[in-house]
Write a protein that binds this DNA or RNA. Structure first.
Lengths: 210, 210
DNA sequence: TATAGTAAACTACTATAAGTAGGTTACTAT
DNA sequence: ATAGTAACCTACTTATAGTAGTTTACTATA
């Protein structure tokens, strides 16, 4: 992440005797506080009243400086997306070979997630906490199915159960993401998409599909 | 999907002269109407007032019969999840070989999504419409990066641009899903996860990692 | 050092939506 | 005919996003 920490900002703020703080400082404080709040409670369970309380300022100050709850969230989403993107891009650039680039890019992603787990969840995944239990349950069922399938593939026979389990979840994510991407490519037939994933999974056993 | 259509239910309802309708019929109507509403507007932009209006009933009737907005959504989520699951399982069971099972399962998934696209989005993906533009933008950047990488791999050199683009999105989905799964497997190091995906992508070029 | 101008902040409101208390209507069994 | 109850209603409370209009204190200039 870029720029200063919340502690540094609040240090500077404490220097202003009557609590009147320049715009740019206040905005930085609001955004950093909101990041924390969204990470703590998710979008739906975060309120602007609570944010105002955390910042120790009245609500109109928040609205004056960041517009709306939506807009605040979008700012953080976009900024964090850029941070993530540039971390991955830098890692890829620093690696020499293709293999190393893939590995380094993935590693940069997982490192980023582990450093900002709750924020990443709140921003990029579902509305944290509301239906996660139910969705996790459904994902588990589907991943078990996929896991059983690939366990019987000779391409995966030498791998550990934990690996199979993780890859099964990853594959489910691939299916979901492809279905989302499909919205903007409506001409493709379901058969085509199904073939693509099979090919990705078992490249040596199947012909290339186009 | 199981059971009756909304038209069949409303036909039966219209037989009750004074608008007083047995519980089970009313519940079926509410759930089917809510499916439509969530598909139309997403969870956050759907209101119980609107649902009551669509069902032509007052709000306490809705609450009496389905408990709460959350609970209603969860019911639909779980039911639809089961429908999806059983469609995939049946398709897999009917196929003979491993390859055919994988292909049939994937096809069943994509067929289901194409039949219930907006509902599937509202249930399983993000809070439709609120921040999708921003998230799609970020996904696109990351997928472009992944796409560029795999384009230069000899494992993908013979594939069409549209295929590469789709697979890049699918791969991003795999990364995201693995990061979510990681929450429940905190002992794994980021390096391990990164290796897993590289292995999945380029199985012939890399040793198996455990 | 008084004061005009303005940046920063406030109190007190509106609007919308989830959820509920308590009462009314009409079907059903005797 | 009517007692009991299933189905339904009106009218509220609570919570939260967002706003109108006002006040406070810092800053520049006389």
């Amino acid at each position: 992440m870029s720029s200063e920490t919340i502690e540094e900002i609040e240090e500077k703020i404490s220097l202003h005797k009557h609590g009147k703080v320049p715009k740019n400082l206040r905005i930085a404080q609001i955004i950093l506080t909101a990041k924390k709040m969204f990470a703590d409670n998710g979008y739906a369970n975060s309120s602007m009243d609570e944010l105002a309380k955390r910042v120790r300022v009245s609500k109109p100050v928040i609205y004056e400086l960041v517009g709306s709850k939506d807009n605040l969230f979008k700012m953080i989403l976009t900024e964090t997306g850029h941070d993530l993107q540039s971390r991955i891009q830098n890692a890829v650039n620093l690696a020499a070979t293709l293999d190393a680039k893939l590995r380094a890019g993935g590693l940069a992603f997982f490192n980023f997630v582990s450093e900002h787990r709750m924020l990443w969840l709140a921003l990029f995944v579902n509305d944290q906490g509301l239906f996660n239990k139910e969705i996790a349950q459904i994902r588990k069922q589907q991943s078990d199915l996929v896991g059983n399938l690939i366990t019987s593939s000779n391409a995966f026979e030498n791998n550990s159960p934990i690996y199979i389990n993780g890859i099964a979840h990853a594959l489910n994510g691939a299916y979901e993401a492809l279905a989302i991407w499909w919205i903007d490519h409506p001409d493709l037939k379901p058969e085509t998409l199904a073939d693509w994933i099979v090919e990705l999974l078992l490249p040596t056993e199947l012909p290339i599909v186009r």
